[in-house]
Every structure is written in C-alpha cells, then in structure tokens.
Design a protein around this nucleic acid. Sequence first.
DNA 1: TTGAAAGCGCTAACAA
DNA 2: TTGTTAGCGCTTTCAA
Lengths: 334, 334
Amino acid sequence: MAKTIKEIARDTGYSRTTVTLVINGKSDDYRISPKARAIIEAYVAEHGYRYNQAARSLKLARSHTVGLIVPDIANAFFARLAAALEQLCRRQGFILVTTSTAESPEVERLALENFAARGVDGVILTPCEPRRSLPAGGRKAEMPIVQIDRRFEGDDGFVVTSNHFVSAETVTGRLIAAGAREITFLTGSPANPTTLQRIRGFESATAQLPDAATRFSVRSSDQDTEEGGYALVEALLDSRGTLPDGLIFGSLLIFHGAMRAIRTRLGAIPPGLLAGTFAYSAIIEYLPNPVFVIRQDERGLADHAFATLAQLIRKETPADVLTYVDTDLVAYRA
Amino acid sequence: MAKTIKEIARDTGYSRTTVTLVINGKSDDYRISPKARAIIEAYVAEHGYRYNQAARSLKLARSHTVGLIVPDIANAFFARLAAALEQLCRRQGFILVTTSTAESPEVERLALENFAARGVDGVILTPCEPRRSLPAGGRKAEMPIVQIDRRFEGDDGFVVTSNHFVSAETVTGRLIAAGAREITFLTGSPANPTTLQRIRGFESATAQLPDAATRFSVRSSDQDTEEGGYALVEALLDSRGTLPDGLIFGSLLIFHGAMRAIRTRLGAIPPGLLAGTFAYSAIIEYLPNPVFVIRQDERGLADHAFATLAQLIRKETPADVLTYVDTDLVAYRA
DNA sequence: TTGAAAGCGCTAACAA
DNA sequence: TTGTTAGCGCTTTCAA
C-alpha cells in the first residue's frame, strides 16, 4: 500500500536521489526545483510513504534504537525507569526496546547479543553479573553500554546509580535518631552489589556505636522475594523470640513478605516498630508504625543514563564514569 | 570484531552460500561436505559471527519482532502483561518492543507508524481510540494487530480481554450478598470501553433490585488518577454527607486516591465499608474493611493474545475474533 | 557438493 | 538542478 522510494521515483519520473532529498526535507539544501518538490509531495500525500527502517539501518549502520535490559519490568522501580527512559528516547527520535533477564546472566548475555545483532545504537543495562569483559562489540564499533542502578566492584564501565551506601547510612541514622536501640537489616543476597553497598552503609552507620555487635545485625536470604522476606522474619523470631525495635528492609519484596510474616506470627504490626525501606510502597500509608523511606529518583537516573549514552553514541566522552543520583528520605508516621 | 558472512567466505575460501548454509544449520539439507562444515565452524568458533538483523529483515521482510503498545508501562497490570508477553516472545524467537502512549491517540498512531516502518511482524495493542480504520498496513501485507484488554464498540479487529461486564456483575453481586444496601461505583471516564463495560455490568447487577435508582449510582471522573479518586470521594461526601455502605472502584488509581480521601475526611476507613476493586493492590491486606477483588489473568491474556498474533503472522485464521479470559474474585476480609 | 548473482530499500558520492 | 550507481549484509534460485 505505502510506496517505496523506488516506486515513487518511477511513478513521478524523478530519480531516487531527488525523491530521497524531498522526503528527507533536504530539498532546500540541494536546491531541488519547487516543481519537482511539489510533484513528489503531492504523490506522497496521495499514496503515502513509509520508510523502511531495516534498509536504512543496513545502509547507515545506525538504527535510532536504544536497548534497555532490566531484571524485571514488572518491578515498579524498573517500570518507572523504563517509562522515563522511553519518554526521553521518543523525544530524541530513538525508540526504546526493553528486555527482562529475571536476574539470569545467561539471558543477559543473550539479550546483549540480540541487541548487537539488531544494531541498537546503545544499551542501558542493569547488570546481573559483573561486566568483566564486555561480550558485545557492535558490528562496526563497540556498542556503547551504560549501566544503571547497580555497580559491581571492579567494573569500569559507565554507571549511573543511586548512592546505596549513603542511602543506607541515612535511613539507619534516622532509625537510631528516632530511638531504635536494636536494628536488624533484612535483605536479599549481597551478591547483588546494591545490597552489598546497603549493608556496608548500614554497618558504617552503626559500627562506632556502643555495643554495636549485639545491637545491630544483618540477615540475608538468597531469595529476594516475598517468600524470602517471610522466612527471614520467621528465622529472626525463632532465634530471638522477639522483634528488635528497628527493622530495615533491603527490597520491597522482602518488605512485603516480612510484614506478612509479622502479622501472621504476632497477630499485628507492633505500632512501635521503626521501619526503614529503600522504595515506596502504598502499604506504607496503611501501616500502624513509623516508616522511613528512601525514595530513588527514577527520572534523574533515566536522565543521566540517557545523557551519558547519547554522548557515547555521538562518540563524545562523558565527564563522569560514575554518576550518583541523589535520593530522598521521606518519613511516614502512622 | 565479529565477522560477516562475506568475510568468513573470503577467509575460508568458500562461497557465501556455503557459509550461510552452515551457519543456519542447513548443512545437512544441502549436503555440505563435512570438511567444509568443519572448517567454517572452526572459523566461526574462533572469530565469532553475529548476524545482521537489519540485512536479514530487509531481505526476508520479516523481523522476528513483536510490538506492544500500552497506555502506561508503569501501571502494574500492563507491566505484568509485558513481562508475560516478553517471556512468550523470547521462547518463540521473537523480541518484544514496548511503547507507552499515555492514552494519547496521537502517540498511538505514531507508535503504530513506527512499528510498521521497523517492519515488526505484528503488534499487540491496548488502544486508546477506536480502530475504526487501521492506519497501519505493513509494507508488504497488512501488519497484523491484536488488541488486548480493551474493546471499543463497533471495532472488528481481533481482541483478547477480560470480561469486564461479567467481572463487574460478579463483584457487585458479592457486595450485595455481603449486605451492602447502597453502592456507589467510583470510576474514570466511560470513554474507556473497559470502564463502560464495568458500568454496564454494575447496572445489570443492580437494575432489577428494589429501589435501585436510589440505592445504586455511578460517579465518574475524567481523570483516571489518584487525584480523580480523591475528588470523587470529596464530591460524594459533600453531596450526601456520608459514605454508602458499599463502594466499588474502577481502577487502582481511583481506589488509592479514594482511600486517601476517606482517611483524610473521615479520619479512618470505616471497618464496615464493603469495597470492590478490579485489581489487586498490596494495601488491601492492610485495610480494616472487607474488600472483594477481581483479579485479571495477565498470563492468560498474554497467552491468548500471543497465540492469536502468531496465527495471524503465519497467515492462519484464528478461531475467535473476540476472546474472553476468565477473571477470579478473591475476598479479603480484615 | 559448491558457487554466482540478483535483489530487498535506502543513502550518498559522483557525474552530468 | 537532477540522475546514476555502488553497496550496506543477507538469502535463495539457478547453474555448474
């Protein structure tokens, strides 16, 4: 139905060059005659034209596509990130292609390969393994990658992330200021560098305090899921019989599972329980106890990551290898 | 870094045909000599090969790509849908490309155009306007489209959706069975066909009841947002001074905003309030009142939509134009 | 069993 | 001001 350049050229009697020029709005630059232009434009208005992105990519080795690889698009944090990135991309004439890895390094490698095969101009990646060696050189040049949200130690690629260490320090400090004597940090596996950095922040905020060893502790589960959170609380209760007065949750899933376990085992959430989390969840507003929440700035993360990637795509050198985006602490008191 | 077929052919001394055949695993079909095959495979093992999807798409007019267009990927329902579809696609050798429209018909048309230009093999679409005329014929043939979640009246494309009418009937019936005498349905605009069908279901479930006109009513807001829900409750309270004993919420955002308004205006959620919603939200477990929830089957929706699209792509004719996927009603009692 | 060659639709260098 | 042409990397028909 829609025509190709060749067909338009044939039907109007002009050459492919002329048609291309008119269609790409370069008729002035190349001084196409108003007549030719009018004829071609009229033809297009009547019959339509849709450019063939595959042909264009092939010719230009440029696809105007950005790939996004995240562990789980159904996770609210990544969904918001994707939404923000998509808007940025659209505004800049790129299209965003998203893939989830379910935290599988295998799937991550496949996705990277796939993106390279499709000739995406660059990728934004939340890695689930260290990028020791970038497996994915683009066809022509290397395919630019900027990592977002996570930074494995020793990685030297471009990274945009919240400062998880400082966030954890901050929220821990607030719990202590609010009167928490004992705090347990319930979290997923420290194999995730975000988790690791939060644990370090928690430790940094507590290490110098009197009796730190008995008052503060970390419990982690291999499963960063509701079940994992549930099990963590059960183990905690089994080992010490009672909850500490402060609890920090390493992820939303752990948080939800833990809260469910507390209600199941204790009948209700203790109103005095001081809680800290690293992401907002609507349930916080319905909890009977105070909750301190670190809110990440998904828009800011997306902005920086996209800007860095755009520079890389333009072969410029971004100013910073590692960019930290500020987080906010919001207190919800029942 | 990774080689092209031409380079491999040159370096191994075989022709491009032979190389292609080996690489695509057709060496048996075309009885390539084991020797040629071994040499080429060894070369690839050493130097790597990455196929160029653009070239392939151009040649085959087939991209192994499926486009997904939803109003908002940050909405949990669509995020889950996207996650499910993505898995299906990956398993079948397709890649899923997702775009959000923010309910803008303009953006929707652009996205469709863009997908057509990229030669996606098909698209799954949650439309925000009736598809009266399909604007997007593919280049070669029409680009297959299956609509998901929503069906505008009069549309005749392939549609996979939950039965919103029946869902609304069901949840309304349950509220009444649980003792609700008066019920108000708070919802976004009926311009959204999903909303419209739910309103109809609500009306169908209540119309025959005594004093229906005074006991049951619908209030809708143009804004399907938390603010919209908040305003709806304020208006309700302002007009009748008190809440009905039953409230049904047309969307999660309306639900959250309305609950917030109730807490603000009344100080707390009345424990006797019978509530109904069309999507699960974690806050439900922390509410003091009974809530009846329709849970949609995102996996089921994704399965059917993908299966239908796959048939269309294979030029087969799907059995059903309109497929309803069952929903569940789950009761949460405080 | 293998190779040559055309052509998908587009862009751009060069020619007229 | 407009036209010709080569070629991006791949698949596939036909020939050898």
